[in-house]
Design a protein around this nucleic acid. Structure first.
Length: 248
DNA sequence: CCAGACGTTGTT
DNA sequence: GTCTGG
DNA sequence: CCAGACGTTGTT
DNA sequence: GTCTGG
């Protein structure tokens, strides 16, 4: 699963790393993305690089709206359920298959959150690279035309796979994790010539050696108030050994 | 045949 | 758009 | 607006 | 406690 993620980076840092420019420069007072925690259920716009626009970074809404959706009510109903697309079935399901493999994308993030269930309670953990470098999740995207107002909504879904390694130890409940595309596989993932079979073969459980994790604030999943504060991403001490020491 | 689904796994 | 369940 | 739901597919 | 569906 992957319903919450984070990125706190300068716009320029993304452009340099991916040798791609923002198609529409985000209107940000400080030229930085400042998501300590973004909840998919709020459908934030997020930086992605799509197979059809490999030289630009675009801000797409998290929560894929399939092209066949008829109206905004239907769109609202489906996009909370398409934050993740299971890798096992992404090439078959009606909501995703027309995006695979022609509309795959790299979803740029610094880290992501997973809940650890322990003694009947849930504790969020933040997972990220120890060197602070960015991660790229494998995703799919779609464009939907809202006929009520003539506007186009671009959106994406993060592909999920069975959890492994540190992520599996943390997400002991669902055993799922986002598809992480290794740096040396990014160009392959973005290859416009790739066959469906070859593309499907790139959907594998993997996490970088550098991935580390720590418990984070129980406020992460609160419904009320701002959940996008610097503190929410910091290490939180629960005073429970099974939690505080889990990822050490 | 037509109406309805189409999706995944947070929390309280 | 296309499949499924009734 | 109110009644009714609120969950999962193991072993941390 | 809070959300959804009727």
């Amino acid at each position: 699963m992957c319903f919450n993620m984070s990125i706190v980076k300068e716009i320029e840092a993304l452009q340099e790393e991916f040798r791609a420019d923002f198609a529409e420069y985000p209107i940000l007072s400080d030229h930085a993305l400042q998501w300590y925690n973004a909840s998919g259920f709020d459908h934030p716009i997020w930086p992605v690089i799509g197979k059809e626009f490999p030289d630009s970074i675009r801000m797409y809404h998290w929560g894929l709206i399939p092209h066949w959706v008829k109206d905004s009510d239907q769109a609202a109903g489906i996009r909370s359920k398409t934050l993740n697309a299971r890798g096992e079935t992404v090439d078959q399901l009606p909501s995703y298959r027309s995006s695979f493999p022609v509309k795959t994308c790299l979803v740029i993030a610094e880290g992501f959150y997973e809940p650890h269930h322990f003694e009947g309670k849930s504790y969020p953990f933040y997972l990220h690279r120890s060197d602070g470098r960015l991660l790229t999740f494998g995703g799919i995207y779609a464009s939907w035309e809202n006929r009520e107002n003539g506007r186009t909504v671009n959106s994406f879904s993060i592909i999920t796979v069975p959890a492994v390694g540190l992520t599996d130890r943390i997400h002991s409940h669902k055993h799922r994790m986002p598809l992480i595309i290794p740096e040396n596989q990014r160009s392959r993932w973005m290859d416009p010539e790739i066959s469906p079979t070859e593309c499907k073969a790139l959907i594998r459980s993997w996490e970088p050696e550098e991935l580390i994790a720590h418990p984070s604030s129980p406020d992460l999943y609160r419904r009320k108030g701002s959940r996008n504060t610097p503190e929410i991403r910091d290490r939180y001490y629960y005073g429970i050994e099974g939690i505080d020491l889990l990822a050490i």
